[in-house]
Amino acid sequence: MANTVVESYPPTEHGADDPNRRDFIHIAAATAAVGGVAVFAWPLIDEMNPSADVLALASIEFDLSKVSLGQQVVVKWQGKPVFVRYRTPKEIAEAVKDDNAPMKDPATDASRHKPGKAQYLILVGVCTHLGCVPNFGLGDYGGWLCPCHGSVYDTAGRIRKGPAPLNLLMPNYAFTSDTKIKIG
């Protein structure tokens, strides 16, 4: 095989031009091109992130006296539903009773509401599985049942059954008066 090869470019140390200079030019040119494309691509990717008007701080106020005992009102906050639930004493008792039951995302009932306001549960109404809005009062625990994939939440919004990994999230909120809250 060797005698058929025309050795016009012998791979010896001094026979060829020093390859390093040409390699350098190739690498430098490719690096500049890739870098340029990356710099140009970033704005095109980041453009899809939330725009300034979406990011602008959005908070809402809500008057809790609009909710009657045993009911829930859904308010829209940052495009998402927020559940405001006025719990009955029975529902609170059931939630407290289960504080030590085995749970996926253990939490006590007390950690799910503001101190002294056990009757008001304020939660982001988005299932932590895949984002559907759970239905009020359904499921084995009387809390919520997600219609999409069957996640069951109890009356403290804790995940008890089904594929959701976390309890319903609590938005940042504060009582501005005895019956008024500010979400966000």
């Binding site: 899809m48 992130n49 939330p50 725009s51 979406v54 940052q78 495009g79 998402k80």
Partner: peptide
């Protein structure tokens, strides 16, 4: 998900893209 939505939930920017 925030990047896909262009916000904090599926909304108008999501539909546009």
């Amino acid at each position: 998900t925030t990047w896909l939505w262009g916000g904090f939930a599926v909304d108008n920017p999501t539909l546009n893209r």
